[in-house]
Amino acid sequence: MFPLSLLTTAKGNPMLIELKNGDTYNGRLVNADSWMNISLQGVICTSKDGDRFWNIAECYIRGNSIKYLRIPDEIIDMVQEEEMPVKDKNKKSFSHRGRGGRVNTTGRGRGRGGRGGRRGEGRGNDGRGGPRGGAR
């Protein structure tokens, strides 16, 4: 699991972020990008020594300046739930790809390709009348 996918899963949830300068920001995660830049809402900022507080409605934190993030424990389970269906979907869509190999067991699909086709037909031809399947 990637730290950044855990972070994006945590969207909408409260979290604590400590910056490299020691200040901490408590707020609800609105958005996070692939640089770990973060926007928070309903923020309480605490100074390094914990003796001063600021109420901030909304703020944007550059990912660069983050030391660590503390997020609710249950988020880690939500990531797995969301990752698995994506994998399944990929597999499914993959199996729908390509043609042929289903009904006739020769492995050649119906239609285009194979030998034959429009070989030798002139340009002026209207394009109809060529053999359809793999010619045999």
């Binding site: 855990l6 983050i66 660590y68 993030l69 503390r70 997020i71 609710p72 988020i75």
Partner: peptide, 9 residues
């Protein structure tokens, strides 16, 4: 609890 620690740190 659950932490993400940034590599820089």
């Amino acid at each position: 609890g659950l932490y993400i620690i940034r590599g820089d740190n």
